[in-house]
């Protein structure tokens, strides 16, 4: 997709800002055409491919959804009408890529939708994982 198109797409990450430890974190990336004309998206994969990175406040990455993944290098043409939204869901089980449960605490979640160029990135969102005792 073009840079101009990227400017015309509002991208946001939706998630609950506070979740109990051990519970799946449900994530939704929403891309909305905020212009008055249709915009073509060039999305990587047979189905839209969502990347998610969860990190600590100091920048340490604890989970990267596409870490080690090999994705088909195909592009799906998807036209978004004015006001139309594209939503892609994912879930995080609060484990690192190595399979270890993360500790309760404050995290930052970044999400992006792969295209044939620069990904469609949503602004980072904070995530607080709270222990059951709190």
């Amino acid at each position: 997709m073009t840079l101009a198109a990227q400017d015309s797409i509002h991208v946001e990450l939706l998630l609950e800002p506070r979740v109990p430890a051990g519970e799946p974190v449900r994530l939704r990336l929403r891309a909305e055409n905020v212009t008055q004309h249709a915009i073509d998206l060039y999305l990587r994969g047979r189905a839209p491919t969502l990347d998610v990175v969860v990190g600590r406040g100091d920048g340490t990455v604890v989970w990267h959804r596409l870490e080690g993944e090999i994705i088909p290098a195909i592009v799906q043409l998807r036209a978004l009408r004015p006001g139309e939204r594209l939503e892609v869901d994912a879930s995080w089980d609060q484990r690192t890529n190595a399979g270890e449960a993360v500790a309760p605490g404050d995290y930052v979640v970044e999400a992006s939708l792969l295209t044939d160029g620069e990904p469609l990135r949503a602004p980072p969102r904070p995530l607080a994982i709270r222990s059951a005792a709190r």
Binding site: T49, D51, L66, E69, I70, I71, P72, A73
Partner: peptide, 13 residues
């Protein structure tokens, strides 16, 4: 014949 790669595009298969 190329068919895929990683998310950042630094590796192809």
């Amino acid at each position: 014949i190329l068919w895929g790669g990683n998310g950042t595009g630094t590796r192809f298969v």
